[in-house]
Structures are given as C-alpha cells and as structure tokens.
C-alpha cells in the first residue's frame, strides 16, 4: 500500500525513518529519492544525511540542532512540495557494465557451496527454470535487456540494490538459506526481484549467475568516476548490463589492472517519472513478463 500521508517513526535519538508505503513499488522509491534530492539541494537545519531505500527515507540528524518534531514538520512540508510522484524528475546517470553471464567464476562459487554447505540446483539453470525460461540463453537475454534502477545502496559499502525498469523483463528468485561464505568480486546476482552486484568478495545470499570485470568499488579511487568516493553506483543511477564472453572478460580485466579502462557513463540524463509511468503502463499490457516477450521485444530505453 502507498500511504495517504507518510509515517514518521523514531529510529533512535539521532534518526527519523519516513515510510511512504509498505510495498515494493518503484513509485515509492521515486518519492524517497525525490525527497532525498530536495534535502540535499536545500538542506534542512540539523540534517546530516539521508538514506533512501525502496519505500523509506532514513534521516540522520544532529539532536543538538533540531528535534524529531521540528524535523518531522520540515520533512512534511517538503513532501507536500514534491507534489505528485508524476511531477518528480531525478538526475539519473546511465552506467554500462559489461557482464559475463554463465561465467566460470560464479559457477565455481556455487559448486563450492554445493560441495560444502548444501546440494542446491546449479545456476544459471535454476534461475531460468524458476522463471519458466527455455534455457540459459533466454535468461541472459531477459536479464540483460532492461535498464536497472539503483533503488538503494548499502548493506555493504557500495552494494547496489537494483530493480528492472521494464515490466516485461522481471525475474524472481528465492534467496539462499543458509548464505554462501564467499562470492567473487563483481558477481551479479538476484534475490526476490532485486538484482545486486557484489563490490568485493563477501558472503552472500543471492542467486548468482554472472560477473562484471569492472570495479564498482575502488578503494584507491584511481579511476575518474571515483573522485568523490570509492563507490561507483548511487541511488537513482541506471545500470545497463552488456553481455560479454569469458575472453572479453579477461581483456577488460587486464585493462582495469593496467588502469586504462574507461567507464561508459552517460552523466547528463534526467529521469522523468511521468514519462516512465506512461511506458510502464504500456509495458504491463504487453504479453508475458519474460519468455515470449524476450523474443519479440528489442532493448527499450526510457526517459
């Protein structure tokens, strides 16, 4: 449900959690990002930072400079001035990331889990089967066709949580239980309908079936897109995966190691929610969320 009025919740003596609703719906995330954007552009006294997520905005504040009630009123005014979600326009970069699907590295991680922890169905076959797709080729097509919306970044430094922007290309998978103890750096995986990229080798619970050779975390900040922080993807960015094979993966990996790799980022784009909603409604009317549609439709851009 999308709440008529947002809920303002105590989250300790330094944080306020604002809930726009309680469902997984991109409209709620657009509201959270729109509000985060206005607070960043025109700061509210006492606010240190905000953390947008799918349906919420966490507001970190300095209690010596404001209090929960003053902040709640100020945020409520901002929410009102945002107008309807359709009026929201967000700066949104488009980041192209090469992705080697059905790659040997994530397969090795899954094999290791199957041997040591639990005998599960291997990927990417499991993800394809669970979504009624014919084969791995079709899975690659369905996963690499839409743009992905970075709804939130976190849990681990630089880890993006992304949703497909095309209702015709949405996959859904269960998470691992128990989680893996390791996942190769750059692994692309899914939990629920959310796609994530592992910035570094960490434990993880998502189904994994691809890997990007391009760092999304650069601790040394040597590549240009990392001049402000070691994190590549920010909430409100869009990601487009470009399928590559293992040979291309190695080539790009070598360019990265040599420091000669150039990121492919469109930095001037805006994302207009009204235009997107129009597209989304049309997309929902089209047949099939994946299999059939994947064959018929070519890549679609929005905004």
């Amino acid at each position: 449900m999308i709440f008529e009025e947002p809920r303002y919740l105590y989250s300790g003596d330094r944080y306020l959690l604002l809930e726009f609703g309680d469902e997984m719906n991109l409209e709620l995330n657009f509201k959270a990002l729109g509000l985060a954007e206005t607070v960043a552009d025109d700061p509210i006294p006492g606010v240190i930072e905000t953390v947008p997520s799918f349906a919420t905005l966490l507001v970190h504040y300095e209690p010596d400079q404001t209090d929960f009630h003053t902040l709640k009123d100020a945020l409520h005014e901002r929410v009102a001035s945002l107008g309807s979600t359709a009026d929201i326009t967000l700066p949104s970069r488009i980041v192209e990331l090469p992705c080697c699907y059905d790659d040997p590295w994530t397969k090795a991680a899954v094999d290791d889990y199957r041997k040591k922890i639990k005998m599960i169905e291997p990927n990417p076959e499991a993800t394809a089967r669970l979504n009624g797709l014919r084969d791995v080729r079709e899975l690659i097509k369905v996963h690499s066709t839409p743009q992905y919306w970075v709804a939130a970044v976190g849990f681990w430094p630089g880890l993006p949580f992304m949703m497909s922007l095309d209702p015709r290309y949405v996959l859904t998978v269960p998470k691992y239980n128990p989680p893996r103890t390791w996942t190769p750096q750059g692994t692309v995986g899914m939990g629920g309908s959310c796609t994530a990229i592992y910035p570094v080798n960490t434990p993880g619970g998502y189904q994994i079936f691809g890997r990007t050779p391009v760092p999304i975390w650069d601790g040394a900040q040597k590549f240009a897109p990392f001049s402000k922080s070691p994190v590549l993807l920010k909430p409100g960015d869009r990601v487009k995966f470009v399928p590559i094979d293992a040979r291309e993966f190695i080539e790009i990996e070598n360019e990265v190691a040599a420091g000669t790799y150039t990121y492919n980022i469109v930095d001037y784009d805006l994302f207009a929610v009204a235009r997107y909603t129009q597209f989304f409604e049309q997309g929902k009317k089209d047949v099939g969320y994946s299999a059939a549609a994947a064959e018929e439709q070519s890549a679609t851009t929005v905004a």
């Binding site: 300790g12 944080y15 959690l17 309680d22 953390v51 997520s53 799918f54 349906a55 966490l58």
Partner: peptide, 22 residues
C-alpha cells in the same frame, strides 16, 4: 500479515535504512 515482497519470516521487511544502535 504482510505482502510477500517483505519476505517470509515474521522478522522480514522490505529493505530500509538502519540506524547505528538499531
């Protein structure tokens, strides 16, 4: 009593921003 996207365990909710001290 919640939508499936929250997750199956009673303690699951749609991912949101945590506070230090949560």
């Amino acid at each position: 009593n919640k939508l499936p996207e929250n997750g199956s365990d009673p303690s699951n909710i749609i991912d949101f921003g945590y506070s230090v001290g949560s």
